[in-house]
Amino acid sequence: MRKNNSYTISKSVFITIIALITNTLHAQQQTITTNSSSDFWKNVQFGGGIGLGFSTGYTNISSSPSAIYNFNEYAALGLGAQYTYIKQKNFYNANLYGGSVIGLLNPFPQIQLSAELEQLRVNVNFDDANSNSQDFWNTGLFLGAGYRSGYATIGARYNVLSDKNNIYGSAFMPFVRVYF
């Protein structure tokens, strides 16, 4: 009987030790996961832009939120969304919507280089009964450079995929980029 009792106690001690070790490992794993998750969000910045343009018979309203992840002080990568509404009275109205991927390089604290691939769906409805509506995709690849101070960068970008059918008035565009 004593042998059986000894075996039962040994078995109980062994199970208790395994349970404690497993619980300790699980707690450490949760701590590591929590820290790496919070480190991720410490490197994320949100920003974007809004645009309003009005004149006689013309309206242009746009919104373009975005977020970037800073790998270090020199490089960042992010995603953006865009929506634009344009109306020219007695001529047309258009909806543009889509997304983009942006890469940022900061070789010096004040200089920011950028590359942005943008894909927009364009829906144009003409007011003239003889004109057809247009629905198409527009792709832009913008390369840019700007001066950075704090959270803001002011500069210019150029659409290297621009052609005569481009939805923008020009391949060259100024920008103001803000990330918090």
Rank of each mutant, 00 (worst) to 15 (best):
G49I: 08
Y58S: 08
V101T: 14
Q82T: 14
S55M: 03
S64M: 12
L52I: 12
V101G: 14
I102N: 06
G53K: 07
T84L: 01
L52E: 02
N60F: 03
I102T: 11
E73I: 07
G103H: 10
N70P: 01
G78N: 07
L96C: 05
F108C: 06
N70V: 02
L52Y: 05
T84F: 00
I68Y: 00
G51C: 11
N70G: 01
G49F: 13
I61Y: 04
L52T: 04
Y85C: 09
Y83G: 05
A81S: 13
Y85Q: 08
F91M: 12
E73G: 08
Y74F: 15
S64F: 12
G98P: 09
F54G: 02
G103R: 05
L79Q: 07
Y83N: 04
L52G: 01
L77N: 01
Y97T: 09
F54T: 11
F54P: 01
Y58T: 13
T56Q: 10
G103S: 12
S66D: 03
T59Y: 11
A67D: 01
P65L: 11
I102E: 15
S62V: 08
S55K: 01
Y83H: 10
L77R: 01
Y69D: 00
L96A: 14
S64K: 15
S55Y: 02
S66P: 00
Y58C: 03
N106D: 07
N70R: 04
G103F: 15
A76L: 01
